[in-house]
Design a protein around this nucleic acid. Structure first.
Lengths: 109, 109
DNA sequence: CGTGTAAGGAATTCTGACACG
DNA sequence: CGTGTAAGGAATTCTGACACG
């Protein structure tokens, strides 16, 4: 049902390329993963693979770190964001359900 | 002046990931490069880097090869495509020049 | 806490060549 | 012509640890 994930979210970028794209060290990139701020996929051999979205995410993380924000705070922000997104999805689904039940409107956007 | 190149054309994908994405062997991918059908960038260490556009290009190439088209013919098609694109750009530029000279219209699209 | 680094090993990629056909 | 493969080497990446602070 979902469209195939766009290029932006395809995990295809190695950590070396990530280093070039973000200007961060590999150590930093791995550490942010350890602190649950970023979630690369793995190749069959165990190598990390990132998406372009991850590039943007890492840039934001780096900015916050520079501003003195600690990783656990950043993680909280991320969790909050995620919950907001979920709420949004739920509200939309409920509205869709009502529209559908009362008027038979499909695919309200 | 140009917008920064979109994700689609950024050369960030290793040949191993290309193999997974296209289903082609590394041998095939390298061979098509040898035959000037595809043009990866190189990392400082010499490793090939491809874009998502290259993924699509390789898929088309693979289809043609399957249909019995030879690499030199595919190359000719690519050259033709490129010339067409150039002509299009030139015509657009000339039209823009005339609009600009006669009416001062900027950025006709 | 966040990051650098040296260490040893494993996965990845590279090139040039031989093979088949 | 297009592709597979074994060969040897180089670049890349991985993890766990020590260090500083």
């Amino acid at each position: 049902m979902d469209k195939d994930i766009s290029y932006k979210d395809k995990k295809v970028i190695s950590i070396g390329v990530m280093r070039e794209l973000t200007g961060l060290s590999e150590r930093q990139i791995r550490y942010y993963e350890e602190r649950k701020l970023i979630f690369p996929e793995r190749s069959s051999g165990g190598n990390r693979k990132y998406s372009f979205s991850d590039v943007e995410l890492l840039m934001e993380i780096a900015n916050k770190i520079e501003d003195g924000v600690q990783t656990f705070e950043i993680r909280q922000e991320i969790v909050k964001e995620k919950k907001k997104e979920e709420q949004k999805a739920i509200r939309k689904k409920m509205l869709q359900g009502q529209l559908n039940a009362q008027f038979g409107i499909k695919n309200y956007k």
